[in-house]
């Protein structure tokens, strides 16, 4: 396997993320893929802090912090403003958490991608409102502990399928990524950069504080999420062409992923079986979609 990670660093040391946070890694790789001719929009989230307080910045491209519900709308305005001022080939990258994407910002996001505005929207999904101290979001998985879904009443609803919602808008490009597969992430961001219209990237982003996991295991967790097929890496073009981009070498039991996280410590064996069944079913559905899209299915994948 050849590695193709650009050497240019547009994120500097000195950002203020917690140790082991997936979010700065995701943005660092995305900026490597996009280069200097990029404007970043940060929706209210952990990244509002990570970028550094005024007058500092940890990002070596122009950056605009914005309100929670405005990831799609501010990006539309910035893109229009840049074009009006002659910057027609500048990439606009919106970075938002799962709260800003799945919940409070979904209206503006849905509207912006329905208009097929020319921007990349990257959601770093740490599966709860982590910046305010670990409250459940609609991205929180079934059974997980958060401060608003205590162990006695863990989350009883499944995680919202945001990729399906974005794909249902028939936008040119939707994809998933994790920081355990930087070449895959970078390839997807580069691909998104060259497509006119709306692009949505869903990045699973481990949060040691909120997941009650070891900071040193964030990349491992990201890899196990993929290898267990709980968070498959794939892309969807124009809402109907599904391509799985990383096939698990050997499907890992989801329990291995869950047991490294304190937020799942209370789960009973039957809970884990229930999660495994759901993961298996969703994976089969995804493989069927990829097959229907014409992708060749490797022997380990089916």
């Amino acid at each position: 396997m050849s590695y193709d990670v650009p050497e240019q660093e547009l994120m500097t040391p000195g950002h203020v993320a917690c140790p082991g946070c997936g979010a700065p890694m995701a943005v660092r790789y995305a900026l490597k893929a996009l280069g200097e001719n990029t404007v970043v929009i940060i929706v209210a989230s952990c990244w509002s802090i990570i970028a550094g307080p005024f007058p500092y910045t940890a990002v070596q491209v122009p950056l605009l912090h914005t309100l929670f519900a405005t990831g799609g709308s501010v990006a539309s305005g910035v893109k229009a403003g840049l074009e009006a001022c002659g910057y027609k080939d500048t990439t606009v990258l919106t970075v938002a958490g799962d709260g800003g994407t799945f919940d409070i910002g979904i209206q503006a996001l849905s509207a912006a991608v329905e208009r097929n505005e020319d921007f990349i929207y990257m959601c770093y999904d740490n599966e709860a409102y982590m910046n305010t101290g670990i409250q459940r979001s609609s991205a929180t998985p079934w059974g997980a502990w958060t401060t608003t879904t205590p162990v006695k009443h863990p989350k009883e609803q499944p995680k919202k399928d945001m990729v399906a919602i974005m794909a249902a808008h028939r936008i040119p490009y939707t994809a998933t990524a994790t920081v355990a597969y930087p070449e895959d992430l970078i390839r997807k961001v580069k691909k998104a950069k060259d497509i006119r219209g709306s692009k949505f990237l869903h990045v699973l982003s481990p949060c040691p504080s909120g997941w009650k996991s070891e900071p040193a295991q964030s990349v491992l967790l990201s890899r196990l999420a993929v290898q267990s097929c709980l968070f498959p890496l794939y892309e969807v073009e124009h809402g109907d062409k599904y391509t799985i981009t990383v096939w698990p070498r050997e499907k890992v039991p989801v329990e291995r992923y869950l047991r490294l996280q304190g937020r799942f410590a209370h789960l009973k064996p039957e809970d884990i079986r229930y999660i495994q069944e759901n993961v298996d079913r969703e994976w089969e559905r995804l493989v069927a979609k990829a097959k229907a899209s014409g992708q060749e299915i490797p022997s380990t994948g089916g």
Binding site: G52, F54, P62, T66
Partner: peptide, 11 residues
């Protein structure tokens, strides 16, 4: 917000 001029706004 101007490409080539890496300033941060509204931090």
């Amino acid at each position: 917000l101007q490409p080539g001029n890496p300033c941060s706004f509204y931090g």
